[in-house]
Structures are given as structure tokens and as C-alpha cells.
Design a protein around this nucleic acid. Sequence first.
DNA 1: GGTTTGACCCGTT
DNA 2: CAACGGGCCAAAC
Length: 108
Amino acid sequence: MSATFATIHALIAAIPEGHVATYGQLAALAGHPKGARLVVWALHNNPPQLLLPCHRVVAKSGRLSPAEVFGEDVQRSLLEAEGITFRRDGTIDMPKHQWFPHANGGTC
DNA sequence: GGTTTGACCCGTT
DNA sequence: CAACGGGCCAAAC
């Protein structure tokens, strides 16, 4: 198994509802500070059986994926349903919703 | 085993 | 301030 790939998938799966993570952030957590595109590639080969919440993965500026990927307002609707709020220009209010993983594994 | 692919990120023009 | 290009990395073909 590729540790890099598995780590990225695990990180995405670990994003809680109401929060989002950026491509660069996930890549950095997986051990590749400059591997934002690895996350992109990982999502393209998104294993359906993992049921990854790929709609919670967004660009650093709070920008969502192109409409043709999920559908016109699919990703946005999913995020709004989880409590994510958006700015006027359609980007996520990142400071409010960006996910910061806990190193202690949630014991705190 | 080289080429292609990706929904990004940052700096420069 | 907007547009453009290069870089970066690992898996698939």
C-alpha cells in the first residue's frame, strides 16, 4: 500500500462535519508540503467504497471545485447542509470552518 | 519505465 | 488588480 495515498484518504475521511480542509493542508499533513496535486489526483481516483467526504476538500482560498465535478450546486449544498457558511462571492468562510486536526487523536 | 494526469499554489508579468 | 505560467508529487497508463 502506498502510505502517501492511504494517509491522504485517511485525512479526508477524518474531516468532521461542519468543517473543511484545504488541498495543501491535507498534503502537508500527509508529509508532502508541496503535494497539493497529490490530493487532487487522489480525489480523481476517489475509491467509491471509502465514501470519502470529498466535498469537504476545498482550495486554500475557500474556493469549491468546478461545477462539472460534483454538479452545479451539489458541493455547495452539501456543505451548507453541514452548517458551512459562504461569502457573497460563493467562497467558504474559511476562518470559521477550516479544520485543524488534533494531534492527541481526540482524547481532549 | 517514460509519459500523462490532476478538483492546486505561488510568484511574476 | 487580473492574467499567466511554472512547479510540485506520486499513481495510472
